[in-house]
């Protein structure tokens, strides 16, 4: 069966505030979907309704076609989730917490043992296996939580900002874990507001703002959403660039749609076209012998679309 998550008219109101407004979204197949949106957009609210932590005011959510609201036990049987930063009973060790999680899921003791060892190794917590969780830092607890979410090798994985509380190395490790999860027959639905994280690991994105879905598409299609197919590129030079040079020699290049100065040595260029045009522009800038020392996209396509869509919502 193809793993799937579906929201049908999913709405959540807290008194007069509508946190989520008739969300209709279906994601299916073996892939990673990034669920994006600014703070307060309704991402966590949506994920909590997918895991029955809160109840919809209207609508329904489905995991593999099973209604979470009508039969949470069957719906969550194929799902591993991590919502916010859960706490584990402080006197338990990671081994015991995973034993409990596995036993409640109906895993056999030998399965629990072998999978516990594997997931604890994956989250780099092997040496803490028999220490009490109550003594752990927030980041360490989050690693154990991730291990628990992956313990049963679930078909559907729901992650709510999984790198929360982790240091930069931990965040990189989480990205690596999520990339590893994609190798299996598995749907990963991951909320995040770290765009680079989403670009790094996700295949599709869904953007939510103020409780409404703005778009849901593949990352490849998101690039096409950029008006005129332009990208922002930042070029840095070893010495200050004079205005006349910027206007006449750089600004007049055929690939440059417009330019602005970031500071004396750095300029931001709007480049027409895709990677081929960027490569040509790079060669031309280098050939100007102005001491070009760096050339990189200042924002990803996703970031461009994100900021544009969110600002449209603000207006």
């Amino acid at each position: 069966m193809t793993p799937s998550l579906e929201a049908v008219g999913l709405t959540k109101r807290f008194n007069s505030f509508t946190a989520l407004d008739h969300l209709n979204l279906k994601v299916e197949g073996s892939k990673c979907v990034g669920f994006l949106g600014p703070n307060g957009a309704g991402k966590t609210t949506t994920l909590k309704m997918f895991t029955d932590l809160i109840f919809p005011s209207e609508g329904e959510s489905f995991i593999n076609g099973i209604s979470v609201q009508q039969d949470r036990k069957r719906a969550l049987a194929v799902c591993g989730d991590l919502i916010e930063t859960p706490e584990i009973y402080p006197s338990l060790t990671p081994r015991e917490a995973l034993e409990m999680s596995g036993a409640l899921r109906g895993m056999r003791p030998e399965e629990i043992r072998s999978r516990s060892a594997a997931v604890l190794e994956e989250v780099k917590m092997t040496e803490w296996t028999d220490q009490k969780v109550g003594r752990f830092s927030k980041g360490m607890k989050q690693r154990v939580n991730i291990a628990a979410a992956l313990l049963s090798d679930p078909e559907v994985v729901i992650l709510d900002e999984p790198s929360t509380g982790l240091d930069p190395r931990g965040m990189a490790e989480v990205r690596s874990i999520v990339r590893g999860l994609k190798k299996g027959h598995r749907l990963i639905f991951m909320s995040s507001h770290i765009l680079s994280e989403v670009v790094d690991v996700c295949d599709d994105v869904a953007l939510l703002d103020r409780g409404k879905l703005l778009f849901a598409d593949t990352l490849a299609n998101v690039s096409q959403r950029l008006g005129g197919n332009t990208r922002s590129v930042e070029a840095e030079f070893a010495a200050p660039v004079e205005d006349s040079v910027l206007a006449n020699e750089i600004g007049s290049l055929p690939e440059v749609a417009s330019w602005s100065r970031a500071d004396a040595r750095r300029v931001t260029l709007q480049v027409k076209g895709g990677p081929a045009e960027q490569a040509r522009l790079l060669r031309q800038l280098a050939s100007l012998s102005m001491g070009l020392i760096s050339f990189r996209e200042s924002r990803s396509a996703l970031e461009e679309v994100y900021l544009r869509e969110i600002s449209v919502g603000d207006a």
Binding site: G65, S152, E155
Partner: peptide
């Protein structure tokens, strides 16, 4: 992201989960 048709009951649990 379209409006999905109404569900006609739950489907069986899919294979894949351990236990």
């Amino acid at each position: 992201a379209d409006v999905a048709p109404a569900r006609a009951g739950s489907l069986p649990i899919a294979d894949g989960a351990i236990g």
